[in-house]
Design a protein around this nucleic acid. Structure first.
Lengths: 316, 316
DNA sequence: TGGAGCCATAGACAAAAACTGTGGCGAAAT
DNA sequence: ATTTCGCCACAGTTTTTGTCTATGGCTCCA
């Protein structure tokens, strides 16, 4: 049963597991040694679980104790976060979530995120900060943003990165292009016509990766036009400056079409990113939310190979 | 502070949040209405948090209350799982984890899994059941297995599926092959020589996907040799029956080499799978473990594009 | 207007947890 | 060998907390 368990007791267990010394653990939680001792003892009796082996040379965590202690630590941490968030929500003191995003991510992702955030924390504002990925990361560093949704790759040693979407890259062309009647294209036949790219300085590491991807298929990248927004890219395509690689899910201007590329499996990956300081009260929740929904969406939709990002759902 | 919070109280809150009626909630947890009422009231006072709005037409969860209630539900569930596991561990009654695996997955994955499992639950046995993916799934259905590590794709509507590894597919050839001096191959120049495949009936859906992948690059698949194990595949290659696609991380027999394929990004994906009944006490923990390590491994190693599966680590 | 349903409060009682003090036991020191 | 110290367990007492019954107020509905 879940009774006979107190959060106070969890703190006792945590302290005892850390110090392996009831006396010092008792000091740490500001009670008499006998209290802590007897509480843990009584708990062990009632659930018939030996957490600590009392040996001649001191205490030792049993295997069961390790399991329970890690539960204790976890739960206490989560409760702190929960209480902080609940208080902030109640007092209407949740700071606006300053969310950076690149214009190259799928707008539906943002929409979904907004809905879910609103559902979880009604009345809590989101401040949207458009900006290219590099700028987003710099702002995260400067604590001018709490988190961001941007295309991968992102250096995961410097930020907390969580992939939240993936969709194929396709070739964007005019609907009167000579290749328009082809259902799909070979990368070799279109590669040299792909000349429109995101401005490399908007996301240097993504561009580097793109260069690598082209190198892997044995084609040097030919950057002739650098665009700073998806609509600029489409405009350039329409104006016959060349072809472009875009996320399959990008809404298309009239007069443009996309064609998949046979023989490659290039994808546009999107991630939720935040700095490790975890400034915003809601971040732990958002993080858990994405962890769960991300695996949940895989779970509910894997049979068909292409994963669509609009699969995020609110989880209880 | 975390005091003033009891697991008993969590059950009260959960019941009240579910019924939105203190009287019925009290019945549900077998206490007098006044107890539940005053406990929740006192808690609200001490943490200065209003969980329930007492309106004329009944109770309503506040936003803060929703947050706390979902924490309560979660935590109670996790505690049940934790207690069950700790008890089982202590009594040495953890049933052996019957783990199915395909011989086509990377052995290091199993090794790591074993280490981590042993680390978390010392002395708890793992029973390995080699078997092709289809057999594993059938055994999951029949409850003859608790879980399995097998190649994707797996129908995620029928099983809990969690991807745990991904690595590129490469072409396996003799080291004296005419293509051996090439650093990488174009899929079109080798496709017709790739004639050695896993026996389709070992994993029908994977084979179907392979057929699709070939179709996408405009090449009909040419299955001439069906192997049931990776070593059979390598033996066939050595005996000049053709080339084969294998996981980049497969250990190679002497005399064989592998070459990456330019122009495609085919991967071998591996997943942890279990049926939804969740029979084994350890499954919730393993699931959380993979959730965390999977995102953790992404986190610690994203810069280079190829993800290696040997990144699983034990998390506190 | 009376009854039913719901929640809050008060007072009595029971249970649980805290504290102080003490004793035992092994390890290190004399 | 004996003392001392650190650590844990146990006993007795006090304080705190939780639960129960009983009751009162409020709203809704017949």
């Amino acid at each position: 049963m879940s009774d006979s368990l107190t959060f106070r007791l969890l703190r006792y267990i945590k302290a005892a597991a850390e110090t392996l010394n009831f006396t010092r653990a008792a000091e740490q939680v500001f009670v008499a040694q006998s209290s802590l001792s007897s509480q843990i003892g009584k708990f062990e009796d009632t659930v018939e679980l030996l957490l600590f082996a009392r040996l001649q040379n001191g205490l030792k965590l049993t295997s069961a104790g390790r399991i329970v202690a890690s539960f204790a630590e976890n739960t206490l941490k989560e409760w702190d976060q929960t209480l902080a968030m609940a208080l902030a929500v109640q007092r209407n003191e949740v700071p606006p979530l300053r969310l950076g995003f690149s214009s190259f991510i799928n707008a539906k992702l943002l929409e979904r995120f907004r809905e879910n955030y609103e559902g979880m924390f009604p009345g809590c504002a989101i401040q949207l900060w458009s900006g290219d990925p590099l700028l987003c990361l710099q702002r995260l560093d400067a604590r001018a943003l709490d988190c961001a949704i941007i295309p991968l790759p992102v250096d995961a040693t410097l930020y907390n990165v969580q992939q939240i979407a993936q969709s194929p890259l396709v070739v964007c062309m005019r609907s009167d292009d000579v290749l328009a009647d082809r259902a799909q294209l070979d990368i070799h036949e279109v590669a040299e016509r792909i000349t429109i790219f995101r401005d490399p300085e908007l996301h240097p590491s993504a561009h580097t990766r793109l260069v690598e991807m082209f190198k892997e298929v044995g084609i040097p990248i030919h950057l002739a036009c650098a665009a700073r927004t998806p609509s600029e890219i489409q405009w350039m395509v329409k104006e016959r400056y060349g072809l472009a690689l875009i996320d399959q899910l990008t809404p298309l201007d009239p007069g443009l079409i996309t064609r998949p590329i046979a023989g490659v499996n290039w994808t546009a990956d999107t991630a939720f990113v935040h700095a490790s300081h975890m400034d915003h009260v809601a971040l732990p929740f958002i993080e858990r939310f994405f962890q769960q929904t991300w695996s949940a969406s895989r779970r509910s939709k894997r049979p068909s190979k292409t994963r669509h990002p609009e699969q995020l759902e609110l989880l209880g």
